[in-house]
Amino acid sequence: MTVTFGPTVDELAPRPPAPENGRRRDAAFEYVRVGSYDEAVEALEHYGARAKVLAGGQSLVPMMNLRLVRPGVLIDINGIDAGQPYFELDRLVLPAMTRYCEVLASPTVSAGSPLLAAAVSRVGNVRVRNRGTLGGSLAQGEATAELGAVMLALGSEIIVYGPRGYRTIAAEDFFLGYLTTSLQPEEVITGLCLPLARPRRGWSFHEMSRRSGSSAIVGVAANVELAPDGGEISSARLGLIGVADRPVVGSFEAVSSLEGEVPTLAQLDAVAFAVAAATCPVDDVQASGSYRRRMVRVLARRALNEAVLRAGGRVGTA
């Protein structure tokens, strides 16, 4: 009997010879530095699908070092003057090139979006936070990126710039699948737009990971709003990471059942259970799917409870 195998990885994508020191390293590429988003889009149009945008490089460069991606051209946007986060009406606007360390140091962010600040404090390690950018994280679209949970829980928007000018994408429409977003090949993210924190709005972020700085096994961001004159919940949203091929919104059906309620702990647990039941996480090297689903229930309950309390509401014990 003859067994035929398909082409090997090396036949499909031949590798250059290993360097003398035996170290894995990235393939050759062309390096283009741009000073504005106009130039970045021009370069993206010119080089096409071979090009990748280099922001902080804390996800892209590891993938290049592992040879998971091999762009022919890197368009470095680090020279673009990022500017600072600022308030605009009832929104917090963050330039895409805002680095995690700047998020953590910014009084504007800690006042305008404490949820973002709390989530970012769980990102990677100090070196990742010193280089990594908000826009870069979004563009990568990782299923376990803390920022994804925050964007979805808050109902935020992503501002992108391309050949036809600016457009705004709602976070729900942004994450499409595994490392896939609705960002077009010739577009670049320029900013993020988050609803401002305000009285009677509460937040919470809970994440579990094997080690500090490891990617999340499961993470939950909660955003709860109370009615202006009572303890009833007027709206609640959850953003989940680590449970699908991308960051996802916690079951709308389950979470919206809290509207008009002054919840009890048992009610929050029932909602958390329903949110968990609606997810279909898969097994991977870090945790099994069923374990992840059970952790969604635990973390969602804690996050909802904490968010209600932060909003100034109460949670009954009955």
Binding site: Q58, V61, R127, V128
Partner: peptide, 13 residues
């Protein structure tokens, strides 16, 4: 003055 991973930056940067 800030710690970074030198394996994730290119010398040209």
């Amino acid at each position: 003055g800030d710690p970074v991973s030198s394996c994730l930056m290119y010398a040209v940067q």
